[in-house]
Simulated assay, not measured.
Amino acid sequence: MSVVRFAGYAALFDVVDRGGDIVRAGAFARTLAAGRGRVPLLWQHGGLRAAGVIETLTEDARGLRVTGRVAARSAAGAALLAGTVEGLSFGYRARRERRGTYRELIDVDLLEVSLVAVPMQPGARVDEVGLA
């Protein structure tokens, strides 16, 4: 069975999202360092079944970089290949935040990453797609 591999950003640092939140650099560091960076890859935040597998999760200067794979014959695989779904998002629980004009997410428990049609953060996008 062929798979679709993808890469992109599930979060961008220091960019206000549609809900008025800003993810700060290092927000995922504790989760990733503690080995809890193995989170499910979901389709549209649907929590009953994983859509595929996250291969890597890393924080870089831009944000939370994700690489993963889904079955080519799945809804997610077909949508990625067609370019009809290219958003990424993440589910979290805030451990430390700062409130002001915006809510700044300083430290979060990362619970899941999702392929989504409309990401909360417009720039959180898949930027590489290919068959493997």
Rank of each mutant, 00 (worst) to 15 (best):
A10L: 09
L32K: 10
P119H: 12
L115E: 07
E112W: 06
G35S: 05
D21V: 04
A132H: 11
V116L: 08
R96G: 01
L41E: 04
G87Y: 09
W43Q: 03
G123D: 12
V23T: 15
D21F: 11
G68K: 06
G130I: 00
L131S: 13
L131W: 06
G83D: 07
A76M: 01
R38T: 12
A29K: 15
P40W: 08
L12A: 03
G100A: 15
F28D: 01
D109R: 10
M120L: 12
F90R: 02
V53C: 05
V129H: 01
L88V: 06
G20Y: 10
P40E: 00
R98D: 11
L105M: 13
G91N: 11
G87T: 10
F28A: 14
V4T: 07
P122F: 07
T58I: 04
I22R: 14
S74C: 05
R96N: 04
S89K: 12
A25Y: 02
V108M: 11
R18G: 00
P119V: 11
R125N: 04
R69T: 13
G46Q: 14
L64F: 04
G46S: 08
F13E: 09
E59C: 09
R69S: 15
W43E: 03
F13T: 08
A71K: 12
G20D: 13
Y9S: 00
S74R: 10
G100Q: 05
D109W: 05
V39G: 02
L48R: 14
R24N: 09
D21G: 05
R95D: 08
P122N: 06
A25V: 04
L80E: 04
S89F: 12
R5G: 07
V118N: 08
R103P: 03
A51C: 06
A124D: 09
G77M: 12
R18M: 07
V39R: 06
G52W: 00
A82I: 03
T31K: 01
S74V: 08
T84M: 09
H45L: 05
I54T: 05
G91H: 06
R38A: 15
A82E: 15
A117V: 14
V53G: 00
R30Y: 02
E97F: 06
A79H: 13
D17Y: 04
G26Q: 12
R103K: 13
L115Q: 11
A79Y: 09
W43D: 15
A61H: 09
T58P: 00
M120F: 02
A94R: 02
G77K: 10
T56M: 05
G91K: 06
E55Q: 15
R49W: 03
G68V: 07
A78V: 14
I54L: 15
S89P: 13
A124L: 03
Q121D: 06
T58W: 00
L110Y: 10
V116W: 07
R24I: 05
S2V: 11
D14E: 15
R69D: 01
A7L: 05
T31Q: 07
E86S: 11
G100D: 11
G130M: 02
